[in-house]
Simulated assay, not measured.
Amino acid sequence: MKDDSLSTEPAGSGAATLEPSRVRAISIDLDDTLWPIAPTIERAEAALLAWFREHAPAAAILAANPQSLREARHFLQIKRPDLSHDLSALRRESIRFVLLKAGDDPELAEEAFDVFFAERQRVELFDDALPALEWLAGRYPVVALSNGNADVRRIGLGQHFRAAISAREFGVAKPDARIFHAAASAAGVRPGEVLHIGDDAQLDALGALVAGLQVAWLNRDGHAWDHAPLAPHTTVADLMTLCNQLA
């Protein structure tokens, strides 16, 4: 008899159904799954601008318009495709680009990035995030799986995770199947034994389905699923609902 838990074939076609008995590990996205990312980045960019005003006033004039930093990142994404999976390096080089453009010392980029990065780790969790993490970590090995540059240890959540895998460290980003398989390996199980939880329909849900994982799509805002015939095994509006389904 075939053991479906060992399969790495695309899952979730048609009316997929969550099978809690097959779940032996959890992989979970971070940004917009455990906390909202937009206000986090806004606070980090505000801290960066305050630092610019004190140490690089010409750059501060440019950075006062958030669009300037976004344009710098877009320019570098085109010119430096080697940075496409390393958001920290991309942010650091964007800061360097703004400093150069403003005529300030580009060597300030390292210190400026440190200011941004420290604030980027100050997140405000969704109300359901910590109770759900505690529940999940008490029953499964949990692996953080992110394209971003959040550090679960600096945030103060490290104790809930068996491992944390980022696109920067791994070299490829979601939805590449290899990063999902790396999460399974880190948890010590097969891909078919992992339930991946994430908010992004394409990067998280479709990526994990194609990689052969079960998928819980965290759909806090009630978006339509536009990727038939594939479908997540379960769609939930909050993480505690998922915990109840797994109980």
Score class of each variant (00 low, 15 high):
Val123Ile: 02
Gly138Tyr: 10
His196Asn: 14
Ala38Asn: 12
Leu18Ile: 05
Ala15Gln: 08
Trp217Lys: 08
Gln202Gly: 09
Ile78Asp: 08
Ile26Gly: 01
Ala72His: 05
Arg22Pro: 05
Gly171Gln: 07
Leu209His: 10
His55Thr: 13
Gln77Leu: 05
Glu19Phe: 02
Ile179Lys: 05
Pro141Asn: 09
Glu107Pro: 03
Thr40Ala: 08
Asp105Thr: 09
Arg162Pro: 07
Asp221Trp: 14
Asn65Gln: 08
Ala208Thr: 09
Val189Asn: 11
Phe161Met: 00
Ile78Gly: 06
Ala183Phe: 11
Leu83Asp: 05
Ala25Met: 15
Ser185Asp: 15
Ala16Cys: 11
Arg92Cys: 07
Leu100Met: 02
Gly148Thr: 13
Ser94Trp: 08
Ser5Leu: 01
Leu76Gly: 03
Gly138Trp: 11
Leu83Cys: 08
Pro10Asn: 15
Asp114Val: 12
Val215Cys: 06
Ala186Val: 11
Leu30Glu: 08
Asp4Glu: 12
Gly156Arg: 05
Leu83Ala: 05
Leu136Ser: 06
Trp225Lys: 06
Leu136Met: 00
Ile41His: 12
Asn219Ser: 01
Gly12Trp: 13
Val215Gly: 02
Val98Thr: 07
Arg70Lys: 10
Arg154Ala: 00
Arg220Trp: 06
Ala50Glu: 05
Arg70Asn: 10
Asp31Met: 04
Leu145Gln: 14
Phe75Thr: 03
Ala173Phe: 09
Met240Trp: 12
Asp128Glu: 07
Ser166Gln: 11
Ala186Gln: 14
Ala25Ser: 05
Gly171Phe: 10
Ala50Trp: 03
Asn244Tyr: 12
Asp32Ile: 05
Arg96Lys: 06
Val172Cys: 11
Ala89Leu: 11
Thr234Glu: 08
Ser7Ile: 09
Leu83Gly: 06
Asp199Glu: 09
Trp225Val: 08
Ala63Leu: 06
Phe180Arg: 04
Gln245Ala: 14
Glu93Lys: 03
His233Gln: 02
Arg139Pro: 04
Asp204Val: 13
Ala173Gly: 01
Leu145Asn: 10
Trp35Gln: 05
Ala216Met: 10
Pro20Met: 09
Asp127Asn: 00
Phe52Leu: 01
Arg168Cys: 00
Val143Lys: 10
Ala15Val: 04
Gln202Lys: 14
Met1Lys: 09
Asp200Ile: 10
Gly171Ile: 00
Leu239Phe: 06
Ala231Arg: 14
Arg178Glu: 01
Ala163Ser: 02
Ser94Lys: 02
Ser94Asn: 02
Glu54Ile: 15
